[in-house]
């Protein structure tokens, strides 16, 4: 029993040093050297391309309505994935109706992704169909030819990787950054 205890304590110490310090610290050094942009959160000056934001008004492409239920923790830090409506909850139906009404007011035909919240609540993407559904509204609000805006969306469609991994996406931050540069 005492020998078991001694061995347990020593092995635990070795594991904490090897797996809890050496492994993640070496990994961090390697990541910062080889993949600095990704390792630090894929940041642009206006936010991370991997973390969704709320875009208000018809001048911008809208992401998923995650911002309506997103919560923050100490220091205003984003806490992901806090909203989990059940598949037959009345509150979910009400949230969908409310979001659809907001989209219709802006001249957007609602789509599935645009009226439902994601799992992370920081979903940075919309599907190409969600983006095309907003083209006319954005073009009108910005007095741009719809064809030009539609073309912009086309250039922003990514994936699926290798043609089959995941689904095709449009990153809302990247799209809006490109939109802001349009004349």
């Amino acid at each position: 029993m005492l020998l078991h205890l001694y061995r347990s304590a020593v092995v635990s110490l070795i594991f904490v040093v090897l797996l809890g310090l050496a492994y993640p610290l070496a990994a961090t050094a390697l990541s910062q050297a080889a993949f600095q942009h990704q390792a630090n959160g894929s940041l642009t000056t206006d936010g991370s391309t991997l973390i969704g934001q709320t875009w208000k008004g018809p001048k911008w492409f809208q992401g998923r309505p995650d911002g309506t239920v997103r919560t923050t923790g100490p220091g205003g830090i984003i806490v992901s994935g806090t909203n989990q409506p059940g598949p037959r909850s009345r509150s979910l139906e009400e949230a969908v109706l409310k979001q659809a009404a907001i989209l219709k007011r802006e001249g957007i035909v609602p789509t599935n992704d645009l009226v439902t919240t994601s799992g992370s609540l920081v979903d940075p993407d919309i599907s190409p169909a969600d983006a095309y559904a907003q083209v006319n509204a954005v073009a009108a609000a910005r007095h741009l030819p719809p064809g030009q805006v539609r073309h912009l969306v086309m250039t922003q469609v990514h994936g699926p990787e290798l043609g089959f991994l995941g689904a095709p996406t449009v990153d809302v931050l990247e799209l809006n950054l490109a939109l802001a540069k349009m004349r």
Partner: peptide, 9 residues
């Protein structure tokens, strides 16, 4: 798509 990510489907 409730609670799911666009990039996964």
């Amino acid at each position: 798509m409730v609670g799911k990510e666009v990039r996964f489907g």
